[in-house]
Nucleic acid binder design. Structure first.
Lengths: 162, 162
DNA sequence: CGGACTATTGCAAGCAGTTGCAATAGCAAC
DNA sequence: GTTGCTATTGCAACTGCTTGCAATAGTCCG
């Protein structure tokens, strides 16, 4: 709580950091919807911006706590909900069904998980095109690629097990 | 605990119920692997045999408790694990990622969920064939259809929202 | 039938995530 | 700078599921 106060204007005067631009963008997006900019939300967003690949909710809580030990889990989860609503965040599902988040700026992709060895690959949009097309034609259903998680057995495991 | 004892032989003498055949099959499958046949497992299996469509773990616990109020959740969940291992049970994922179980005897199928209206459809194996083929060719990856859950927007919602 | 081996159970603690509610504090307007 | 409206927070209880452990009880074997 000791980093707020009059220092707010200071961050605006910082030199051209790409992060600050994004912060301002999210802040504006929130304000445009009548939502509020709070120190807690700012912390979550800053942590997310420094995140590569995926984070689970629990990991995010932990990382937020590193920066602000007073972090409350429910606040983080509720912030996640808001950030997904404004499109800053997307989620997919880990093989165990748990939600995994990634910042919306990352290229959209799905996942492939081997149930046997536990390995995991990303599926680029063009590779998923066949899936999209199939359900688009048969049902006029638009599959969400970033939510696509396929489970099965990889080439290596199939070869090993015969 | 008062329904065990010498009444065990009584159930064997019941007239040709298809359920009893399956019970015997599962029991044998377990025994073949050095696993054990217990009243608790039997209860779970009987509940599952009377189940249509999907059940979540929590629902299963509840239904088991209806028949045996002494049912312990962890026992049910551990039984689920065993039954999946012997192939009596399969699981997919609900749109929220939670596991949904169905008895292996049911035809294999995947699921389609509309993120907008919450509706859900089954995907028959032949409809999923395109998905299977795509990843079979590009990665030699065998997609598990019963685990296939696609999220997106259905025709109705796309039409309504433009 | 009785004994031994060990899979399974029941229990209690714990983790991930959600929810209702009263108190707090952004934000806009004056 | 103050005031008021209400979004948001912190808290505490709760759901769903998992895990470690000691006690119990299936199952095999003689």
């Amino acid at each position: 709580m000791n980093e707020s106060g009059s220092s707010a204007s200071a961050s605006a005067s910082a030199s051209a950091s790409p992060a600050s631009t994004d912060l301002a963008h999210v802040r504006e997006e929130l304000r445009a919807r009548g939502l509020r900019w709070t120190p807690q939300r700012r912390n979550v967003i800053e942590v997310l911006q420094r995140t590569r690949g995926h984070v689970t909710g629990a990991e995010l809580v932990e990382r937020c706590r590193d920066r602000d030990p007073a972090t409350i889990p429910s606040t983080v989860y509720r912030t996640i909900d808001v950030l997904e609503e404004i499109g800053f965040l997307r989620h997919g599902h880990a093989p165990d069904g748990r939600e995994e988040f990634h910042v919306g700026a990352e290229p959209e992709h799905g996942h492939l998980h081997c149930a046997s060895c536990g390995a995991s690959w990303e599926v680029a949009p063009d590779e998923a095109a066949a899936v999209l097309a199939a359900f688009e034609q048969s049902r006029a259903f638009a599959v969400d690629v970033s939510h696509l998680t396929l489970t099965g057995r990889c080439a290596a495991c199939r070869g090993a097990a015969g």
